[in-house]
Computed example of a mutant assay.
Amino acid sequence: MTKSPKYSDLPLNKGDPFRSAWGLYGKDDQLGTLNRLTEDIVLEASKEIKTGTRISLNWPMDVQNKTPFFNRQVFHQNMYAKPPRCVNDDVWTFNTQSSSQWDGLRHFAYQKEKRFYGDVTLEDIHTPGSTVNGVGAWSEKGIVGRGILIDYYSWAQNQDPPIPHDAFATSSIPLEHLKAALAAQGTEIRFGDILFTRTGFVSQYTSKSDDELKTLAAVNPPGMAGVEQSEEMLEWIWSNFSAVAGDQPSFECWPTQKEWMMHEVLLAGWGCPIGELFDLEKLSEECKRTGRYSFFVTSEVCNVPSGVASPPNILAIF
């Protein structure tokens, strides 16, 4: 793996978009920051397995069937019998971003430049038969390594006075708060870690009535809490992580509070997977019970060579 340059050295090439790292891993690279998950780093991460406790971070695929946000298509299952045998088959149709998901490198471009990771164009992606930047490239080795949870929601509720947090309102979670929660947990970051942020979205979503969710989902674009958009946040992610994920729908505060979006830099600039709508409730409980907020992560994206995004199929193992 090529050693990562300093954040201040980005972009790597004159004329490339804001803070991009195009070319760091080669002209035709499809893995981005997943290149940080070397065999040595994964082997070291496997030492996190102590008890064999396994926790799924996958929200049900049909969870938003009544009230989809961002006007996305809901999950649909067509199950049918196959007489004369006593046999069933089923067909699923769904938007890959209607529940837990990894955003792939075809999902979000630099909006002004209209360029995806590696200077790929929309035309490149839509060329018949093209698999460039397809999520299937991640399936060969998966997203596997050491995960850490920042349980921001619990930390905020335990402050005196508690820090108010509405997951359904446009608001930014400051980097200093994430670092304070990390310190309170006693969690150490290691280079190449996979970051998970529990912000309370899933907890608050499941506590709302259907009518409340319908009202919130009707707002377009919806307001969502997420991590702050700042160069300090970007530098922190660049300096530490191979992928980032959270329970919130957009990971970052939405709509953006800047002239740029973190999605542009993470996905189009660095090839950094963004996980969204992960169910971190049981994970939070286990971390609190054990006092341990690091674990082994295994996530196998669907092997769809031209895919834009994928369910994570993810487990945390203690």
Rank of each mutant, 00 (worst) to 15 (best):
M233C: 10
T53A: 03
D28C: 00
E228P: 07
R72T: 11
L175D: 04
E276N: 10
G192L: 05
C272T: 10
P222Y: 04
L34K: 01
S203N: 05
C86T: 12
P161A: 01
E276I: 09
C253R: 12
R190T: 14
T96A: 13
Q204G: 07
M79E: 12
R19Y: 12
D247G: 07
N71P: 08
W260D: 02
K82Q: 15
N13W: 01
V132R: 15
P312H: 00
T38S: 15
K288R: 15
M262H: 06
R198S: 04
T215H: 09
T121L: 11
K141P: 05
S154L: 11
D29R: 00
D103P: 07
S203Q: 13
E188H: 03
H165S: 12
G147P: 14
F75W: 15
I55A: 09
K66L: 13
V304D: 07
M61C: 07
Q257S: 08
Y25M: 04
Y7A: 05
R190G: 00
Q30R: 06
L266Q: 00
T127W: 08
L178S: 02
Q204F: 04
Q248L: 14
E276H: 02
I148W: 01
R292F: 04
F116L: 15
L280F: 03
Q111V: 15
V120L: 08
N303Q: 09
A183V: 11
T67R: 05
P60G: 01
W236F: 15
K258P: 10
I237E: 11
K3N: 11
E231W: 00
W260N: 08
S100P: 08
K47V: 00
H76W: 07
